[in-house]
Simulated scan of single mutants.
Amino acid sequence: MAESIVPPAVSSPIGSAISPLTPLPLRAVLPWAVFVGTLMLVLLYFVGAEQGATSVFSGAGVHEWVHDGRHLLGFPCH
């Protein structure tokens, strides 16, 4: 008679010792949130308004770099 080979039970590396997640303090998140928000506003300006009378840089260099993104986001440019 053939013996059946049963593999031993494999225990999970996490097991039952799952520690609860601790929330991040607002002091740690707030500077990054302000940085990302400011960066998003600057990018939105360059894509949406860097042209014509509100232009910060002269010429059409910035406009050409963000031209396709401008159309993708629905901003008119010409």
Rank of each mutant, 00 (worst) to 15 (best):
F35G: 00
L21T: 09
L26A: 15
A33D: 10
A28R: 06
L72E: 06
A60V: 07
V62L: 15
G37D: 03
G15D: 08
P20W: 00
E50N: 04
S12N: 13
A33T: 09
A28Y: 04
A53R: 11
R27I: 06
P7G: 03
P20E: 05
L72V: 12
T38M: 12
L26S: 12
L44G: 08
Y45P: 06
H63T: 10
E50Y: 04
T38I: 12
M1Q: 03
P25V: 00
P8C: 03
A49I: 07
A33S: 13
L24E: 05
L43F: 09
V34C: 02
G61S: 09
W32K: 09
P13N: 11
A49M: 11
P7D: 09
D68T: 14
G59N: 04
E3G: 06
L39M: 08
P23H: 01
L26W: 12
S11T: 13
P23T: 02
L30Q: 08
L41F: 06
W32H: 04
G15A: 10
V36H: 07
R70T: 01
L73C: 05
A33R: 07
L30K: 04
G69S: 14
L41N: 06
A17M: 12
R70E: 04
G52L: 03
S58E: 10
E64W: 09
A60F: 03
F46W: 08
A53E: 13
P20M: 01
G59V: 00
W32S: 05
S55A: 15
L21C: 02
L43N: 11
W65V: 15
R27N: 06
I5W: 10
Q51E: 10
A49N: 07
F35R: 02
P8K: 14
H67N: 13
V34P: 01
R70K: 11
G61V: 04
P20A: 10
Q51I: 07
V42D: 01
V29I: 15
M1N: 03
H63E: 15
H67S: 13
L44C: 04
H71E: 15
A17L: 14
A33C: 11
L39N: 02
L24N: 05
V10H: 14
L72A: 13
V47H: 00
V10T: 15
W65F: 15
A2N: 09
L30F: 11
V10W: 07
S58F: 06
T54L: 14
A53K: 14
V36M: 11
T22V: 12
S19I: 08
F57I: 12
P23I: 04
A60W: 00
F46V: 07
R27D: 11
I14Q: 14
S16H: 13
D68K: 10
V66H: 02
M1Y: 02
I5G: 07
L24P: 00
V10S: 12
A9G: 07
V34H: 00
W32F: 08
I5H: 14
L39R: 01
M40N: 03
A9E: 15
A33Q: 12
G37F: 05
S11Q: 10
G69C: 07
H67K: 15
V36R: 01
E50R: 03
V56D: 03
P31R: 02
G61A: 08
G48N: 03
H67T: 13
L41Y: 01
